[in-house]
Design a protein around this nucleic acid. Sequence first.
DNA 1: CGACGTGTTGATCTCTCTCAATTAGAGTGG
DNA 2: CCACTCTAATTGAGAGAGATCAACACGTCG
Lengths: 246, 246
Amino acid sequence: MGTTIRCSECPLRELAMFQPIADGHRSMLESLRLAQQYKPAGATLISEGQVDAPLFTLFSGWAYRFKTLRDGRRQVLNFLLPGDFVGLQEKVADAALHGVEALTDVWLCPFRRDALWQIHSGAPELGYAITWLAAHEESLIDENLLSVGRRNAAERIATLLLVLYKRAAALLDSVPPEGIEFPLTQQLIADAMGLSLAHTHRTLRVLERMGLHRIRDGRLQIVNPRSLERLADIWADGQPAIRPLI
Amino acid sequence: MGTTIRCSECPLRELAMFQPIADGHRSMLESLRLAQQYKPAGATLISEGQVDAPLFTLFSGWAYRFKTLRDGRRQVLNFLLPGDFVGLQEKVADAALHGVEALTDVWLCPFRRDALWQIHSGAPELGYAITWLAAHEESLIDENLLSVGRRNAAERIATLLLVLYKRAAALLDSVPPEGIEFPLTQQLIADAMGLSLAHTHRTLRVLERMGLHRIRDGRLQIVNPRSLERLADIWADGQPAIRPLI
DNA sequence: CGACGTGTTGATCTCTCTCAATTAGAGTGG
DNA sequence: CCACTCTAATTGAGAGAGATCAACACGTCG
């Protein structure tokens, strides 16, 4: 796990959820890429206000984007899973308008600073894919905004668990009976859903007691998907069948 | 106001806030464009769940994107002003995940369904601009999510007024003393900030009594920008100096 | 072993919601 | 010109979801 994996051997691409890519495009990406980087859990990947932020694809592990107010109140904007493309927003602003932090140990595939333009100009298909990814991430945030603005605590948490479960499960060949890896702390759930820690905890307890889900040893099981979905009120399951990977 | 304005004579482009564009690109856009469309205030531009949603640039007027829950609770995701590019998200999903409604009478510059790909493949600079716009809109929603998740009612409303004021003012040569056009109802402000109508009204009153702003006859004046900014706790004023226009 | 992070829980408080009316202005039809 | 309707703004009273504050438990780790 110390050496750089070549794009031509990228295991992420093996997954059915990612679009196939032409060999030419694959090698182009490889030429724009730098060596893979490892960062431990808790590491800052992009700091709020950072001027020359990196551009990378999350290769493994979980991370999250967030914003904070001066007095310390923090809002998690969304969670990042393998395959997510990070740093786009920094390219439209002088400085990063949000921070990104590793939630677990992560590996990144960083790109050269000029990669965004190189990709657009050299491979329109991939440029289109980047636009796609940007629009897709926005749709995730839209869903979060709906949660935080209009759902009550139980509904918010049900929605979050469900959405994260589906996203994480899509990256697995099959979901083990103990459920998926789920590294979120209650504080993080609270910060993502605009709730206090205490209320998040109590609400989590209620859902668990109702037999909707279970979180044990850093793993999440969805016990009663039907009820959770009814609570969350999600239609259009949100998860596209297949997506690009840059 | 009944005839289609040619892109080569587009008055929006005259504004300093929009990037200049090469003649070739301008004519390309023109070839991908359909006739301008007028829609009255309240018209549905894209309905939630719509399958083959249009792609357009808002030419004049205000609109907003929103999502609703089955029981009718509604969350406004963001407001759209002239120059905003709409319908990108619909291209990454089978169906529109949100609705778009005209807030005032509007004029649209709709594009052919295949325009997105044509632009990316035929003019990478414009493809890049589209990615830019997508990332920029996401940053607006990030700010909204921070508001709704972590700011109290007064802070939320201060933030919204300030941000909308700046965006709208940037589209004007100069701001008249009566302030900018401001067509939002209190219900809409409530739905955007995740508040109830009653509390929105009371909070608006408080801010006005404190001498921070004034809303009269559909116009918004910022009376005390300093205090509003302190309340809103906005750094990095968020508004890029110059942006693309598709 | 003490420090620290995370989970857990009780008691209290308050911001914001809900429900209910009332007012004001614009538009419509007779 | 006036009744009628509708939308948006306005306001009061009461209720409640969720915040805040304060402990305590438990496991890990240097």
